[in-house]
Amino acid sequence: MKIKRKIEIAVISDVHLGSYGCHAKHLLNYLNSIEPKKLILNGDIIDVWQFNKGYFPKSHLKIIKKIMNMSADGVEIIYITGNHDELLRKFTDTSVGNISIVNKLVLELHGKKAWFFHGDVFDISIQNTKWLAKFGSYGYQVLTLLNRLINWYLERRGQERYSFSKKVKNNVKTAVKYIRDFEKVISNLAIENGYDYVICGHIHLPKMEYVENKHGKTIYLNSGDWVENFTALEYQFKRWKIYHYSKDKLSPFYVDEELEDMDLKDLIAAITIVEQHEKKVKKN
């Protein structure tokens, strides 16, 4: 039996299930390799903006089933809503067994305060011109699909993967300024409110940075995404680290045999099992 890595908290965000850019198989490998006490889904897990009835592969369904199974096994699942899954904000502060839906979260970790949220509330382009942000999202989707085709070709030739969108973000001055402003506003606000850690997603840029100003200090953390970077945040032994799937691959576990032939009926069955488990717990 393979031993999974035990960690206190795992944080993933910007998975974008239901979109062409999502690398669900990589994420499933990662989830199969860990045994967290808490799994924090920090927004944009399901991409409602890009949702298409004709496109929701089995690999995407397997992620949902895996999360349900983790919940049934006693893992606390905290779903923090984002802009792409904002429809779930109707269910804020709702809990079903070990799964809860919130807009933000504050935890005390060994005497330090950690503030979790997705990050879209600090994005002016979304707050003021949502239609433009959605239009940009469709453009990003097309770019991502093109990028996947090119990377398929590069991998067949044994060459390194290439990311168009990451290249654009790293080189366009406006994009760089936007990211720096985003990080600065969030970090300053965390310091102002006395948070030792501030953890977000949204901008698809994994990062861990110590920030200090005249009012105090904090550690800014971003969980990145599972579209380009394949990253997560992990908390264990009183410290945070960024997990890079492509670099770390610490004991990766591949798709469980029981998940191999899963379809929508299996997903419904998994949800039913979770509900039955919760009823037994309540009776006891």
Rank of each mutant, 00 (worst) to 15 (best):
K279S: 04
L107T: 00
H110F: 03
T174S: 08
K241I: 10
K112Y: 01
Y140Q: 06
N171A: 04
T231G: 10
F164A: 08
Y243D: 04
I40S: 01
G224W: 05
L109S: 02
Q141R: 12
E209T: 15
A270N: 08
K112T: 02
T231N: 11
G82I: 12
L189W: 03
F182G: 06
E108S: 02
S187H: 07
H118L: 03
F237S: 13
S33R: 13
M1K: 03
G82F: 05
K37V: 10
D196H: 11
S125I: 04
N128E: 12
L145Y: 14
Y197M: 08
S223V: 07
D263F: 04
V121I: 11
T218F: 06
L17I: 10
I126Y: 09
S125W: 03
T94I: 05
G201E: 04
D266V: 04
W115L: 03
N222C: 15
P36S: 13
I77S: 02
H84P: 03
N29V: 10
D263H: 08
N103R: 03
H244I: 06
W131Y: 12
P36F: 07
A269S: 11
I273P: 00
V15F: 03
Y140G: 06
W49L: 04
K280A: 06
G54Q: 09
V227P: 07
Y79H: 05
A114P: 01
G74F: 01
G54E: 13
P57L: 09
S100D: 00
N151F: 08
W115N: 02
N29T: 15
E258G: 05
H118D: 02
Y55I: 09
V106C: 00
Q236N: 15
F230V: 05
D261W: 11
L233V: 07
D93Y: 04
F117D: 01
G74M: 01
Y197F: 15
T94N: 01
T218Y: 10
A24F: 13
M70R: 02
I67M: 02
V281A: 05
K214M: 10
E192P: 01
N29S: 15
E278L: 04
H16I: 14
L154W: 08
S251N: 15
G136I: 10
I101E: 00
W152V: 09
V11M: 01
I34D: 05
D47L: 12
A24Y: 11
W131N: 14
G97L: 00
